[in-house]
C-alpha cells in the first residue's frame, strides 16, 4: 500500500504529462484556433493538477489557485475570438509550420 500523498503526486504527474503532450498541438497548429484550443486544455488540466497537488501537499490554499484559474482560463479564448482575425495573421506563411 503506497502512501496517500504519493498516490496524489502520481495523479498530478500523469496530468502534467498530458499537459506536456498538449504542447505538441500548440507547436504544430496548424491554425491559430487549434493553438488556442490547446491553451484551453491547459486551463482545465491545470485546474486538475492544482486540485491533486492541493491534496498531495496538504495545502488547501491551492484550491483557491485552481478556482482563480477556472474563472480566468476563458478570458484568453474570448480575447482571441473577439480580437484576432485569421486572414491577417502571420500564420499565413505556412512553410515554417511544417514539423
Amino acid at each position: 500500500m503506497i502512501e496517500a500523498h504519493t498516490a496524489w503526486y502520481l495523479a498530478s504527474f500523469v496530468l502534467l504529462l498530458t499537459l506536456i503532450a498538449g504542447l505538441l498541438r500548440i507547436w504544430h497548429g496548424p491554425n491559430p484556433a487549434d493553438r488556442m484550443l490547446a491553451a484551453q486544455l491547459f486551463g482545465t488540466t491545470g485546474v486538475g493538477i492544482l486540485l491533486t497537488l492541493a491534496q498531495a501537499m496538504q495545502m488547501p490554499a491551492l484550491n483557491d489557485v485552481a478556482l482563480v484559474l477556472a474563472l480566468l482560463a476563458t478570458i484568453a479564448m474570448v480575447a482571441f475570438v473577439k480580437r484576432m482575425s485569421p486572414q491577417q495573421g502571420p500564420t499565413k506563411s505556412q512553410p515554417e509550420d511544417q514539423p
Binding site: 498530458t18 486544455l41 488540466t45
Partner: peptide, 11 residues
Amino acid sequence: CLFFIVGTLGL
C-alpha cells in the same frame, strides 16, 4: 486521469 489522457489523445 484516464479521461484527461483521452482528451489529449483526441486533441
